[in-house]
Design a protein around this nucleic acid. Structure first.
Length: 335
DNA sequence: TAGCCGTGGGC
DNA sequence: TGCCCAAGGCT
């Protein structure tokens, strides 16, 4: 298998080095390349990315407007997890109009949240957001926390989302390492086209080293880097000709080698598809649904039972009177 | 850590 | 037409 060519390192080069990918021996015996940024100091990278963003990258997205609240930023970040911007926009508009504060969502039922989630995908996020709203009300007086470590204690808020909320809602100087940023840095610094697995500590260190000292500028840089990955340095068809970092990019220098990626499990016929079909049937009606309706949504009885059981286990579905099923978890006072 | 968890648009 | 992908998180 072909290995990527490290960026050229000149002897006696200066000390500005950023490390990315897996530093040290990796499981397959590869040593990560060290990219010498002498020819492209961190400041120049930051400057180029910010200049590109100001001229070409800036999209008018509702969660980027100056009047957004931390709560709205949090909602947008959860919705954007593994979900394209274009599909988030309409659901975000509905959610933020209906539940503009943590208090308002906390006062709703989990079933309302799941129903309003529609077909965004990964519907457990609706439950998590609802639980997060209640936690924010109960534990933080209705104020969205501004510390990444505290944010990450909320359901559905992991390291990325916590950093994003802290940086974008509170202008905290926090490295925001999402899949776009990982791809940009991996390609630029080490020539790896598709970083895989959980982000490594070395990747966080590389991003920290790049991050401007000024908190506001750091947040701008994070948005710009994410945008660069989303619009130019894309996974499938990168627009290197339009990229402000091409001339110093290790991956570009190496001739853009293909790299390898992990195969993903088939979706058609999977339990995931079955769950989705059952949830779609449950969303279709405002009232509890009969087992016959669910059978029409997913005919295979064994898989239907399994999928339904997992949905109930997740709290996305619960039993209703008359052997029917409804959206949302069983309520504590239902008995 | 790997497997699991939705959905629909684009190529 | 399928395959690939999109601002992850949880167990």
């Amino acid at each position: 298998m072909r290995r990527n060519t490290p960026a050229q390192t000149r002897p006696g080069a200066a000390s500005t080095r950023l490390i990315t990918g897996s530093a040290g021996p990796d499981p397959r015996g590869r040593r990560a390349a060290l990219s010498d940024l002498t020819q492209a100091p961190a400041q120049r990278v930051v400057h180029r990315v910010l200049a590109w963003y100001r001229r070409h990258g800036r999209r008018d997205l509702p969660w980027r407007r100056s009047d957004v609240t931390p709560w709205q930023v949090l909602v947008s970040e959860v919705m954007l997890q593994q979900t394209p911007v274009s599909r988030v926009l309409p659901v975000y508009a509905v959610w933020t109009a209906r539940w503009p504060t943590p208090q308002s969502l906390a006062a709703a039922t989990p079933a309302d949240a799941v129903r309003a989630w529609g077909r965004l995908g990964y519907p457990r996020r609706a439950l998590w957001l609802h639980q997060a709203a209640r936690a924010i009300v109960d534990r933080f007086g209705g104020i969205v926390p501004d510390e990444p470590g505290v944010l990450a204690t909320l359901p559905g808020i992991g390291r990325y989302t916590a950093a994003a909320v802290a940086a974008f809602a509170y202008r905290r100087r926090v490295a925001v390492l999402d899949t776009n940023v990982r791809r940009v840095l991996a390609r630029f610094l080490t020539g790896v086209p598709h970083p895989t697995g959980t982000p490594r500590a070395a990747e966080h260190r590389s991003l920290d080293a790049l991050l401007p000292k000024n908190a506001d500028r750091a947040a701008q840089f994070s948005v710009a880097l994410m945008e660069l990955g989303a619009l130019i340095c894309t996974s499938r068809s990168p627009g290197c000709a339009r990229c402000p970092l091409t001339t110093d990019c290790a991956w570009h220098r190496a001739g853009r080698p293909a790299g390898t990626r992990r195969p993903r499990a088939p979706y058609t016929g999977s339990d995931r598809q079955a769950r989705g079909a059952l949830l779609a049937a449950l969303r279709e009606y405002p009232h509890p649904v009969s087992t016959a309706d669910l059978a029409r949504a997913w005919p295979d009885p064994t898989q239907r039972r399994r999928a339904l059981a997992s949905l109930v286990s997740d709290g996305l579905v619960s039993c209703a009177p008359g052997g029917r099923y409804q959206l949302g978890p069983a309520t504590a006072d239902a008995t």
